[in-house]
Design a binder for these strands. Sequence first.
DNA 1: CGGTCAATAATATGATCAAATTATGTCCTG
DNA 2: CAGGACATAATTTGATCATATTATTGACCG
Lengths: 226, 226
Amino acid sequence: MTAPNAPTPNLPAHEIVYRQIREMVLFGELAPGQPVTIQGLVAQLGTGMTPVREAIRRLTAEGALEFKGNRRVCVPDLTAQHLHELAFARVALEPHLAELAIKQATPADIDALEATDARVNAAISAGDIRSYLEQNYLFHTALYALSGADILCPMVQGLWLRVGPSLRIVCGRYGTLNLPDKHAEAIAALRAGRAADLSAAIRDDIVQGQDQIAAALAEAGGDSLA
Amino acid sequence: MTAPNAPTPNLPAHEIVYRQIREMVLFGELAPGQPVTIQGLVAQLGTGMTPVREAIRRLTAEGALEFKGNRRVCVPDLTAQHLHELAFARVALEPHLAELAIKQATPADIDALEATDARVNAAISAGDIRSYLEQNYLFHTALYALSGADILCPMVQGLWLRVGPSLRIVCGRYGTLNLPDKHAEAIAALRAGRAADLSAAIRDDIVQGQDQIAAALAEAGGDSLA
DNA sequence: CGGTCAATAATATGATCAAATTATGTCCTG
DNA sequence: CAGGACATAATTTGATCATATTATTGACCG
């Protein structure tokens, strides 16, 4: 009855809408500072306004969207201070999740991560920004998910949700050439069971990426990347 | 037409409802594992169901409520692992916020904190659990707010939102006698400008509190406090 | 003990109301 | 006479509610 590509017809509409808008933010379809209107999303996604409202509330709570004063919602525009806070939180949490993951990872898990990293490199070579953002996100997310941390993983995903739009801007402006890639070191450490090395690789990856955004922001002058 | 106690008629209803439910969770009016129905809240709060739906989505995103499979929402029941994750995140973030706060705090700010701490102690002496939870939350929140960290502060508040219900259970079960109170040390360090001491005091406060919950959970046997 | 039916609660749509922003026109000033 | 600013009106947008639809739960009957 349903089309073959309807894997989860039981999923509520607000969940679908939430994921759609979330991907728009994560992979840069919505730029920082860009206003987001409920009715615009209703028209764009072809659904009622209640699911859209609920999705926006959720994303606002996660920091992916921001209440801009008078009932106006937009994608947040990061300041240097915000970037600093995000870097601190990421360095505090993500290496720890990686260390937890090392105890749970099976060889099959590591192979899957390596395959994802190959797609990351392919995207970098091809200069495909969208694909790079997706696969890079997938690499980190999949690694952390191995930790089985029910609370910390969603927290970290919230941090990525805040960094996403700015990362997109930086990639679009300076290309995918000198992007951070400590993934190979991370995978090697994961295979060898060297927790400290894995932790360091992830930390370096984070710091490099954040430094690039910070540099772009400093070059842009003001508080904004827009 | 409206009652005299309508101080903010301009605030949207979903915001009001959100804060009401949030306080219920934070201060233990809703117990862990307790199911939360939309219509129950509609009847209890005397509002429409749309604001209630939006508030529930927001709280679910923050981890204060949990989607329990079949479109059922309830207050999460912490396992030992979840408690461990929360303790890690709190220790990673809250002492840092305290250190940031020390640079911004004015004498008036510190006096206000001391007044709040006095109310914490009064609540402990009186055995008033609800007041203790409120004032203790207020003490930490106000301290961290001094840091001016727009991203980290809401993150930490999300952590408190998850701990709240369990803390209430523990207080109700074992009383307010041997609760952690490193607040005096924290205030002294804050006045003296000793960042390391302040950081240590906050960390000890967190660890003691979490250890109490962990002990209660271990005594209860299973994964649950309920 | 299993299956079916009814009741209940959540999901989702559309309509209505209120608020805000934008655009326009007029008046005042240089 | 021209340009800008303020006030007002209109359109756009968000908030809320009432209602219909659907799925799940629990009970009752075979």
